[in-house]
C-alpha cells in the first residue's frame, strides 16, 4: 500500500502527514517511537480505511512551535486537524502517547470520532505501578523492554543502539519529554473526566508490557463506560508490531 506525504498548515505550524488507502477515515496517533520505523500495521489498515498518520509536532524531525507545551495543547490541535480534514466519523487509533492524545481530545469533543482504539495507552496511571522510566534508561534498554519476544527485543535494541545519536532519535526523545516528562506520561486529572467518553472504545494491552504496566488496562477500562479490553498474550508494549494480526483482529480488521 503506498502512502503519500502531505503537509497541513494549521495553527501556525506545518503538520507532516502520511496518507494512504481508501475507505472511511482512520487517524493514527503514534507513540514516543514516532513513525521513523513505518509500522506494517498501517499498511494493513489502509486496505480498509483511508489512513491519516501525522508526525506529532516535534517528532520525525518536524518543528514544534514554542507555544505547544503539553498534551492538552496537542489534543486541541488534533481537534482542529479533524475539523480541517472534515472528518465525520473517524476511527481514531492511538499507541502509547498517541492513545493519551486521543483520550484528551475525546473528553473535549468526540463529535468527529466514530470509535477509539487505545494500544498500550498513556494518560492514566495506577498508583504504585511505576512505568519504565524511558528517560533514564538507554534507548537500547528501552527497546529491549518493549518486546516480549527475545529475538525481536534484541534486534530492536541493536537498531536503537545504532540510531541513538541520529538527529531524529535525539529530537524524538526531546518531543517525548516535552509531552511526557512530568508527571511521566499521564494526566492525574484525566481519569475524573473519562466518563465523558461515549464513543465505543477498545483498549489493547500486551500481557508482558514492561514499559506501561498491564494493570493499567483494567483501570482504564473501568473509567471509560462500555469500553472493551483485549489483553494479548506473549506480547510487549507494541502489540500492533509484535502481534499485528491479533491487534487487527481485536479491531475487527482480521485479514
Amino acid at each position: 500500500m503506498s502512502f503519500r506525504t502531505e503537509t497541513l498548515s494549521l495553527d501556525g505550524l506545518s503538520l507532516r502527514m502520511r496518507r494512504g488507502g481508501s475507505g472511511a477515515p482512520l487517524l493514527y496517533l503514534h507513540g514516543t517511537d514516532g513513525l521513523s520505523e513505518w509500522p506494517a500495521f498501517l499498511d494493513a489498515l489502509a486496505e480498509r480505511y483511508e489512513v491519516f498518520a501525522p508526525d506529532h509536532p516535534g517528532f520525525g524531525g518536524t518543528e514544534c512551535p514554542e507555544w505547544m507545551d503539553d498534551v492538552s495543547d496537542l489534543a486541541y490541535f488534533y481537534l482542529d486537524v479533524m475539523d480541517a480534514l472534515g472528518f465525520r466519523d473517524a476511527r481514531v487509533v492511538g499507541h502509547s502517547l498517541g492513545g493519551w492524545i486521543a483520550l484528551e481530545a475525546a473528553v473535549r469533543n468526540q463529535s468527529r470520532i466514530k470509535d477509539l482504539t487505545l494500544i498500550a495507552s498513556a494518560g492514566v496511571h495506577v498508583r504504585g505501578h511505576a512505568k519504565a522510566d524511558i528517560f533514564m534508561i538507554d534507548p537500547d534498554e528501552q527497546a529491549r523492554l518493549a518486546y516480549a519476544d527475545p529475538q525481536m527485543a534484541e534486534e530492536a535494541a541493536q537498531k536503537a543502539l545504532a540510531d541513538k545519536y541520529q538527529d531524529v532519535a535525539i529530537t524524538d526523545r526531546i518531543a517525548s519529554a516535552r509531552f511526557g516528562w512530568n508527571p511521566r506520561f499521564h494526566n492525574p486529572r484525566l481519569g475524573r473526566w473519562l466518563h465523558r467518553v461515549n464513543a465505543p472504545t477498545l483498549i489493547v494491552w500486551g500481557e508482558q508490557d514492561r514499559i506501561f504496566p498491564p494493570v493499567t488496562g483494567p483501570a482504564m477500562q473501568a473509567l471509560i463506560p462500555g469500553s472493551q479490553l483485549v489483553v494479548i498474550p506473549d506480547c510487549g508494549h507494541l502489540p500492533h508490531v509484535e502481534k499485528m494480526d491479533a491487534t487487527l483482529a481485536a479491531m475487527g480488521c482480521a485479514r
Binding site: 545519536y165 529530537t171 517525548s176
Partner: peptide
Amino acid sequence: VSEQMFFPPGYMSPASLKKVL
C-alpha cells in the same frame, strides 16, 4: 555512567548534545 541522566532530553540543543557526546 548514565548518559541519559546527565543529558536529559531538551536540556541542551540537539547540536550541543551531539557535540558533548
